[in-house]
């Protein structure tokens, strides 16, 4: 991500330090991760210490300091999905793609996340791949779902 793009985002927020989280969110959503150089640029332009930026960037689950895979898998582990078998579902996903939550596969095909109840408790347990919900899914069907994502 080049400085011009980052500057554009910062300018949109009038370069105010209080917009730090909003700026980081926009960089994350455009670039899918927060490169070190981007954080340094934000620090310089908003006049916010890098320590504070790094704390925020590691505090929120949405931010990633490493590149994300082409496809983002989200396994809901909220309370309702939990009692409906989310743990077994998560185990299956981990076994299939060989990474744990918070990680990205070495071929950059998948990133895996858990948590954040998505408010679709009627559909649990579910996995969401690139925003598409696969609801009331049995562990046996996960492989079938994932093979559509290269």
């Amino acid at each position: 991500m080049d400085n011009a793009r980052i500057d554009r985002i910062i300018d949109k927020h009038q370069g105010e330090a209080s917009s730090l989280i909003q700026v980081l969110l926009e960089i994350q959503s455009e670039n899918h991760w927060l490169p070190k150089e981007a954080l340094e640029r934000v620090s310089e332009k908003l006049q916010v210490p890098l320590t504070r930026i790094r704390h925020i960037a590691t505090f929120y689950k949405t931010f990633s300091l490493i590149p994300k895979g082409r496809h983002e898998i989200h396994v809901c582990t909220g309370s309702s999905c939990h009692v409906r078998g989310a743990t077994r579902l998560l185990d299956t996903v981990q076994d299939l793609i060989g990474i744990r939550p918070g990680e990205t596969s070495s071929d950059l095909r998948f990133s895996l996340e858990t948590g954040n109840c998505l408010g679709c408790c009627a559909l649990g347990p579910e996995i969401v791949v690139d925003g598409k919900h696969h609801s009331k899914i049995a562990p046996d069907n996960v492989e079938d779902v994932l093979k559509d994502y290269d």
Partner: peptide, 28 residues
């Protein structure tokens, strides 16, 4: 260390990262 570096020295060389039980200090 984090606060002294930020508030007194104004260098911000060390900060906290992460949250909850994984929170730790980290130098830049």
């Amino acid at each position: 260390c984090v606060r002294y570096c930020a508030e007194v020295k104004k260098k911000n060389a060390v900060g906290f990262v992460d949250r909850g039980t994984r929170r730790e200090i980290s130098f830049i």
